[in-house]
């Protein structure tokens, strides 16, 4: 008896396939947080950036994110083909050849870094290059299949955009930029682990050591609560430095309390367990969806305060 290898049926790629190769949903979050960092930097320091340069720098962040996504899909195409959730991606579905995805990722990496340098400075361009390397190589190739801490350490890749946005305006990286980094860094594990509670069987199938696979759903739910407990005070740090004002403070408190409530409900549930009820899995899904809303709303508050002249810091009152 021989092992049958099911090759994907070849189909002709469309523009949408190439767009999907760049993970557009992740790209949206990356662009949004990067732009928020850029706007906050300009507002906090009084340094103006030419609107066209700001737009091109934001585009460079988007392209860099897409490049990293394409490299990730190139490397992970073997496991993507096995997992139901990812089997329709452009490479496993047979639309885009692997080598084309890699070429697209590498070319876009170069283009994005060059555009960033032209639109801003070498520091922002260097940070963008490093963040692509972080996601494409450190996370995808070294961590993802090696350790259950893959998401924790790999989360650094997604945390760079506001730092890049800040550096694009000012040419340096002050504490405020690193606080925005820390918010995304501590947000990533509870966000992704909520998803992995739903998809842990898929990860087990391809031997990716996600936390629910290696340590079980109960430990994962505990870790979600621990990271959320760290995230909430970290999200309040902008109030101490003056980066966040009243609007941000109210948003961070409300959103943080809701995220914590989800994490507490999750730890009391059986989400991810073999005997999990439909309601438990629905709770994990809702936590995942809320976590996306959380980050959008939190950085939206930063954006609203600094772009609309509504920044009234609490410090100095």
């Amino acid at each position: 008896m021989t092992d049958a290898v099911i090759l994907p049926q070849k189909r002709h790629a469309t523009a949408v396939d190439y767009l999907n190769l760049m993970k557009p949903r992740i790209m949206m979050l990356v662009v949004f947080t990067g732009f928020a960092g850029l706007v906050a930097a300009s507002s906090m320091t009084g340094i103006a950036i030419h609107p066209a340069m700001a737009a091109i720098a934001t585009l460079a962040v988007a392209l860099g994110s897409g490049a990293a996504g394409a490299i990730n899909m190139w490397y992970d195409s073997d496991i993507d083909a096995v997992m139901t959730r990812t089997s329709t991606r452009p490479i496993p579905s047979g639309a885009v050849p692997r080598e084309e995805a890699l070429a697209l990722g590498l070319i876009m990496s170069g283009v994005s870094v060059m555009l960033m340098w032209l639109a801003s400075n070498w520091l922002a361009a260097g940070l963008l290059a490093f963040s692509i390397f972080y996601y494409g190589v450190i996370y995808t190739m070294w961590l993802k299949r090696a350790t259950p801490q893959n998401i924790v350490i790999g989360g650094g890749a997604g945390a760079f955009p506001p730092v890049i946005g800040w550096a694009a305006v000012t040419g340096n990286i002050p504490l405020d930029a690193w606080i925005l980094f820390a918010i995304i860094f501590f947000w990533t594990p509870p966000h992704f682990w909520a998803l992995s509670l739903l998809a842990h069987k898929e990860y087990a199938k391809v031997s990716v050591p996600m936390l629910p696979v290696t340590h079980g759903a109960k430990v994962t739910r505990q870790q979600i609560l621990i990271y959320t407990l760290v995230l909430v005070p970290v999200s309040l740090l902008p109030l101490a430095t003056g980066l966040g004002g009243w609007i941000y403070g109210a948003a961070a408190l409300g959103l943080g309390a809701t995220f914590l409530a989800y994490a507490v409900r999750l730890i009391r549930s059986n989400a991810g367990d073999a005997n999990a009820a439909g309601a438990d899995m629905k709770l994990a899904r809702n936590t995942f969806v809320f976590s996306i809303l959380y980050l959008f709303a939190l950085f939206g508050a930063v954006l609203v305060e600094h772009a609309a002249g509504l920044h009234f810091p609490l410090t100095g009152l």
Binding site: H50, A52, M53, I56, V111, L115, L118, A119
Partner: peptide, 15 residues
């Protein structure tokens, strides 16, 4: 890409 490089070059020269 060519247009974007041109725009950044013109702005850099002007500013």
């Amino acid at each position: 890409f060519v247009v974007l490089v041109m725009i950044t070059t013109v702005i850099r020269l002007n500013t």
